[in-house]
Every structure is written in C-alpha cells, then in structure tokens.
C-alpha cells in the first residue's frame, strides 16, 4: 500500500487511485471507499449522478488541460496530478494554475514517477500531498521539503517575491 506525505507529515492514505485502464468504481464502491479517478472517468460518473466531494476526486494526466477542470473544482476536495515521467514538468505548471488561477483550496496530490528532489519545487508550485512507495524513506523525503529556507520567486507557498520582502 503506498504511503502518503501530506502537509509535511506521514499520514494515513484513505483514497484509492484508479489507474487509467481500471473499471470505474461502482455506486457501492463509492459508498464504502474514496476514489481518485481519471478525468474522463470522473466526467462519466458525474453524468450518472454518482460521487461527491467526500468520496470522489479526479486526477489529471500531464497532457490534460487544467482549464477543463475549472467548472468542476467547486465539487472537489482533492485533485491528483500524475507524473508519467519525472522529466515531464507539466505537473508543476498544472498545480500552480489550479492553486493560483483557479483558486483551489483543497488537496493537490502527486503520484507516479516524481522523485524526492522535486518535492520542494512541487510544494512551492501548490502540491501539498505526495503518494510514495511503501518502502520509500519518508523521513528523508520530508526533510527535502525544507531544502531551502528562502526563494527568489513568488509561488504558492510565498505570495511575495523576495524583492518585495527585502528590507
């Protein structure tokens, strides 16, 4: 079972991440569990009147357009972002747009092929939850979240760029 680092601490993971080719959760499965599903599955479930913010979340692939998510964010507590390849940096911009431009206050969770040394930047970009391997060194990963104590740019963790804070 993958582990979850959320808001800087190791936490119980209650959400199941539905991978692309898995069957959509049934109405019963949604009654008993919490699911993060691909965008297309999310749209289908919603059109069938299934799921609510408490048991249904959505995850975006790197190629998905975040703007398409805008009308749905009011019904969501959790948005996932999937790294297919760690070198594909689209998730960073997706997270930042969801937080800053679409004003999403819920959980943004990353999954997939990201690695420890990207976590500081991901956190700055608006990600607050990281799904990690069961055998991952979570302590070391949590430490990486504070690799730097200050940054030049404004981002989700610090709305003011350094030049506005310099005295």
């Amino acid at each position: 079972m993958p582990k979850l680092i959320k808001d800087g601490i190791l936490t119980q993971n209650e959400w199941q991440w539905l991978v692309t080719d898995e069957a959509a959760p049934s109405a019963e499965a949604l009654e008993t569990g919490k699911w993060i599903v691909p965008f297309s599955v999310y749209l289908t479930l919603k059109s069938e009147g299934l799921g609510n913010a408490k048991n249904l979340g959505v995850w975006l692939a790197s190629a998905d357009n975040v703007q398409d998510l805008a009308p749905h964010l009011k019904d969501l507590n959790i948005v996932g972002l999937n790294f297919e390849k760690f070198a594909d940096g689209r998730s960073f911009s997706q997270a930042r747009i969801i937080r800053e431009q679409l004003d999403f206050g819920g959980e943004i969770r990353v999954n997939g092929d990201f690695y420890q040394d990207q976590m500081f930047y991901l956190a700055r970009s608006g990600v607050n939850a990281f799904l990690i391997e069961d055998d991952a060194n979570s302590e070391s990963m949590i430490e990486s979240l504070s690799d730097f104590s200050d940054s030049y740019q404004a981002a989700c963790d610090e709305p003011q760029p350094l030049f506005r804070r310099r005295v």
Partner: peptide, 16 residues
C-alpha cells in the same frame, strides 16, 4: 540580474 534572481531555482520551470 533581475532575471538571474527570478530564474534561479524557479520551482515551476526546472523540467521544461
């Protein structure tokens, strides 16, 4: 210099 500071360790643009 302003660009150097802005681009240095930019969190969003390290995996272009």
């Amino acid at each position: 210099e302003i660009i150097r500071q802005w681009s240095t360790l930019h969190p969003e643009f390290a995996f272009l």
